[in-house]
Design a protein around this nucleic acid. Structure first.
Lengths: 260, 260
DNA sequence: ACCTGAACACCGTTCAAGT
DNA sequence: ACCTGAACACCGTTCAAGT
């Protein structure tokens, strides 16, 4: 039968840590957060649990490795891909002021580079929704693990050419990274299936908007006031605006306007 | 024996959803993230699992309720407490520009109110470390759940009196909230025990700083460059600086300086 | 309506035993 | 050195049965 040959084929290639991490990412991509179990791995790899545990210490380590692999790819990928991965959406959803997404070679300005890295992370999480949860967990449990380090380095590099005094590099970069992580955490997607199509997303926004307007006026006056903006907003655009807001804060804090 | 009487005492007061949530918070505070199990609840409440599931739908719902309870308390608490909860630290660690922590009545300026709410969340997470993980999980799994709503409302209210056009309220508030959530997620504490004492924290910072300096110079030039700042930084102070940076970005973006 | 407690399905992890 | 597979401890959750 086909099953037997596929299994033996799988068995034929040797089991490595790399192959386990690869399969873990596949499982997570295919079926989301709860799908990565040792047993799912063993059936897909045609082995037993002991084989897995020979190569990886435990489940958390594997989750870390999977997240690290995807994040590293997202951060080292040529920046153009970030915009190219979502072809149809990019055309409609991408508004003005997103010139950063198409630098032909090296980024033009540090700001462009920061925007490009941020969008790279944003898009990576859009492609791998489990990453949002995983990033959040890693950052709380191991705040200076390899993933956080890589993100800090990627954002910090352009920050260091931004003109802020070196003494402020750490705090400045932290502010940017923390915003990026907070924003991507919430933006991942509310309902994995409903948000896939454009119509489904519109419906979701309309529902949420209506829910906000129906809130208690005494307890939630602000949320009611912005219910309309909720319906009309675009996550990616809002994310970029936030980046620009923080960048404005950083630069104006350090270099008061030279022209009167 | 004492055990028997205590148990029957517990049994005597009726089991309510509220009492279950209360006990859940106690367990989480006492022993952290993994300590909240149905069985731990049953022994502590002197019941069986069936009794628990009569009052709460499932474990996730209980976790949500626990987080909601603590967050709500942190957001409605008179702002003074935020500074008062960490008496000795507040004296040393609190630098300049933190006048916001002691408004005698209503906050003086919107900025002060925003800082006060943010610090309230920061301190709540410092007191309940499991909140960091829980907040991160909730925001990714249910981006517009009650907890997020409450935080948005608390930040959005002062934002609406900041002078930015109403059309930008949602995006502006999002930027602030996302920064706050990202920052508090990472800041919770690296090693729960080691960071409790001042000496332990200093040692942790020194170790991390040294680790950064020992990184690969080609891969991590930036992290190496800021290793010193890591050793000397204070989380709370850095958090406040980040808030101020974002606030600067918001206000300068909307009201160009009127004086030349 | 509210609670009991045994039972179920499903985890991650271990480890003697094989090759 | 690398893998097998049964076994263990521990989860969340259900449900017939009681009061």
């Amino acid at each position: 039968m086909a099953t037997r040959t596929r299994q033996s084929q799988r068995r034929r290639q040797m089991l490595t840590r790399e192959r386990i991490v690869e399969t873990a990412v596949e499982l997570l991509d295919a079926s989301g957060d709860g799908a990565l179990t040792v047993r799912a791995l063993t059936t897909r790899l045609g082995t037993g649990p002991g084989a897995i545990y020979w190569h990886i210490g435990n489940m958390d380590e594997l989750l870390d490795a999977a997240a690290d692999a995807v994040i590293t790819a997202a951060l080292t990928t040529p920046r153009d891909e970030a915009a190219a991965t979502q072809p149809d959406e990019a055309a409609t959803a991408q508004p003005d002021g997103a010139a950063a997404t198409h630098p032909d070679r090296a980024a033009a300005t540090p700001q462009d580079e920061i925007r490009a890295v941020a969008l790279g992370l944003f898009d990576a999480i859009a492609e791998h929704p489990w990453l949002a949860t995983q990033l959040a967990l890693q950052i709380t449990r191991n705040p200076w693990g390899p993933v956080t380090l890589r993100i800090f380095e990627s954002i910090g590099r352009p920050v260091s050419t931004l003109g802020v005094p070196q003494a402020d590099w750490f705090t400045t970069t932290s502010t940017l990274v923390h915003y990026i992580l907070g924003a991507t955490a919430q933006t991942s997607q509310s309902d994995e299936t409903a948000t896939q199509t454009e119509a489904g997303r519109a419906e979701f926004l309309a529902t949420a908007s209506k829910a906000w307007r129906d809130l208690d006026p005494d307890e939630y006056p602000f949320m009611r006031a912005i219910a309309d903006q909720m319906r009309e907003h675009d996550d990616r655009e809002q994310f970029l605006t936030g980046i620009n807001l923080v960048l404005t804060g950083i630069t104006t804090h350090h270099q008061p306007p030279t022209d009167p």
